[in-house]
């Protein structure tokens, strides 16, 4: 996957799925990614919404929160893996908790509160 002209037309920007249930955080991620030259799919607040979005469009990368209300994001992670879409986590969960899920084993977690500069850099690196 190659990085297209980041500041190009909206349609030509790389598309990043955002899954985050806290509305303020979701909007902050969305703004940071758009400012970073991406197009945002979502933000989705639940596993169901995220899977619905993935049914309609396959993004180039994704940023996932881990806890979505009482659900975990793992079904979305599995779907992304099977689609071959690289992703990072932005979650306050401990490494111990995340390590319980095989699908998240080699996934970087940028933590929460999230350093947005680092996040955008990490999403860019997913393309490299």
């Amino acid at each position: 996957m190659t990085m297209r002209n980041p500041m190009g037309d909206l349609e030509h920007r790389s598309c990043v799925l955002v899954v985050e249930d806290e509305v303020f955080l979701a909007m902050e991620l969305e703004t940071a990614l758009i400012d970073g030259g991406f197009r945002v799919l979502g933000p989705a607040a639940s596993v169901k919404d995220a899977l619905d979005l993935l049914g309609g469009e396959c993004p180039d990368a994704a940023v996932l929160d881990f806890n979505l209300g009482r659900d975990k994001v793992t079904p979305v992670a599995l779907q992304l893996k099977s689609l071959g879409v690289p992703f990072v986590l932005a979650s306050a969960s401990s490494p111990a908790e995340l390590s319980r899920y095989a699908v998240l084993a080699d996934i970087a977690n940028l933590g929460k509160p999230t350093d947005l500069m680092r996040l955008v850099a990490a999403v860019r690196a997913l393309h490299a």
């Binding site: 806290e22 806890n67 306050a92 929460k112 509160p113």
Partner: peptide
């Protein structure tokens, strides 16, 4: 952590 992230945001 979550709460702080929300407040900050």
């Amino acid at each position: 952590n979550n709460l702080f992230a929300v407040v900050r945001s």
